[in-house]
Structure formats: C-alpha cells, structure tokens
C-alpha cells in the first residue's frame, strides 16, 4: 500500500491537522517510509490468532452509582482559552 497526497489530506482532515502544502508533501514521504516499515507484519500469518487489546486479564471493573463532588465552576474554566460568563466560548460552527 502506498499513501497518496489525497490520503494525506483526508487523514489530516480526520485528525484536525490543518497542514500546509509543504507539510503535506513532507508527510506523504515520511508516512510512506513508516508504513513500508510496518509492512513487515504481513510476513506473518495471523489468521488464527486472537488480537490482544488488553494485556491484563481483568474484567468488570465498576463503580457504584454514588454522587461525588463536582468541580467548582471556576476550576472547570480555570484553563479555558476563552469564556463567556460560566460557559466555554468557541468560534461559531459554520
């Protein structure tokens, strides 16, 4: 598989990275290098192998439905780049 410029633009869009043209060209090359490197895995037949997403064999970790303190609203907004009263403020959605 090889990645085209179009793929790069699509992936950057999915990842919300506003790449400029120069970066797009650079990533096209670099990603192809890295993905070629990853092609190595295709040497292995893994048809009958189960995937491992969790290395630990644990399950059913639950908490009980008991209310705990929320943050003070000033702490919630302490790091907000922009706010409007007690709301986070963002540019509009066009």
């Amino acid at each position: 598989m090889s990645i085209t410029k179009k793929d790069i633009i699509h992936v950057a869009d999915l990842a919300r990275l506003g790449l400029n043209d120069e970066e797009t060209i650079k990533y096209e090359k670099e990603l192809n290098d890295v993905l070629n490197f990853m092609e190595k895995l295709n040497e292995l037949n893994t048809d009958d192998v189960e995937p491992t997403s969790h290395v630990l064999d644990i399950h059913n970790v639950f908490r009980s439905d008991v209310v705990e303190d929320s943050l003070d609203v000033e702490d919630v907004l302490a790091n907000a780049p922009d706010r409007d009263e007690d709301y986070f403020k963002v540019p509009s959605i066009l």
Binding site: V76, D84, E85, Y87, F88, K89, V90, P91, S92, I93, L94
Partner: peptide, 11 residues
Amino acid sequence: ISSSNSSNVDY
C-alpha cells in the same frame, strides 16, 4: 447557528 459569531458550551 449560522448567524452567530460564537457559541457557548455547557458540559
């Protein structure tokens, strides 16, 4: 939605 310059978010 389209005529406003900004939106406020309540989580």
